[in-house]
Amino acid sequence: MNNKIFAVVAFTVAIALAAVTQLVPNEYFFSAAYTVLLFVILATAWNILGGYTGYVNFGSAAFFAIGAYTTVFFYNAFKAPLAVGIVAGTLVAGLAGLGLGYLTLRLRGVFFAIASLALSVVLYIFIVNWDYVGGARGAYVLQPRDVPFGLPRYIHLIYAVQLVMAAFALVVARAIEKSTLGRGLAAIRDDELAAECSGVPTLKLKIFSTMVSCALMGMAGTTFPYYLSYIEPSSAFSLSYAVNSIAMPLIGGMMSWMGPLIGAVLLGSVQQLVQVTVSSAWNLLIVGVLLVLFVTLAPNGIMGWVDVWRRRRER
């Protein structure tokens, strides 16, 4: 399937799904589905750098928060509508990724990982001390009273937007994976020195994939202030985003765009269930334990099992 057809299919499915699910009578469905979709975008974005290129980004929460706080900033400054926040947040997060990548991607991979972790703490402290966007107290972002497309509530719109953005992230990830660029990234992942020697412009490709990955993470965050109409630093920078965006691709499988999608839908739904039925601390423990178990015992994730099963059937 070529990219254009895939894009058309993905967006059609997303819009159709958004339209059909509007009939769901339960309000909780929308907020749960919004969170799962948020993780689909984060996991897909993380995998562009982590899975395709082999560089670990621990700063997912930072880029997510950049997206969220850009929305808050434009809302405070110009009462800008959601669409402006989405575009601006994506761009700002992409630029931040570009900067981080430019500074640290020339070093060994682990330095990038540590720097990404450092970035999330520095940004957190910066936001806590920046009163214009609410500082430690947090900021209110009021949902507009009239919702377009005749939807009953704003959460319905946010959910539909998130669905379309998830489709967009998957289209981007798949396009990168199937292109020459994706092969260059895979070469870096498997043996960076050999890739460099064979003429792959490794630094450029790494910086590019970091930028795309971080921009998509920022995009996931742009709708977040509207989700609860309130945002504060410790929820925007929650470690659970960083852990989940690593755990989901690892559990689903990192080699293709399907892995993060499967991982995010599975793990995200399980977490929503556990959060309602047990407690939120337990659901984080489950993610941590699953992450460690999968990474030690099933390094290729669920898609790895699928591959093994397929190969066995072909024989």
Partner: peptide, 9 residues
């Protein structure tokens, strides 16, 4: 990659 994720977990 996986070793880092392991320690993070």
């Amino acid at each position: 990659l996986r070793g880092l994720a392991f320690f993070f977990g």
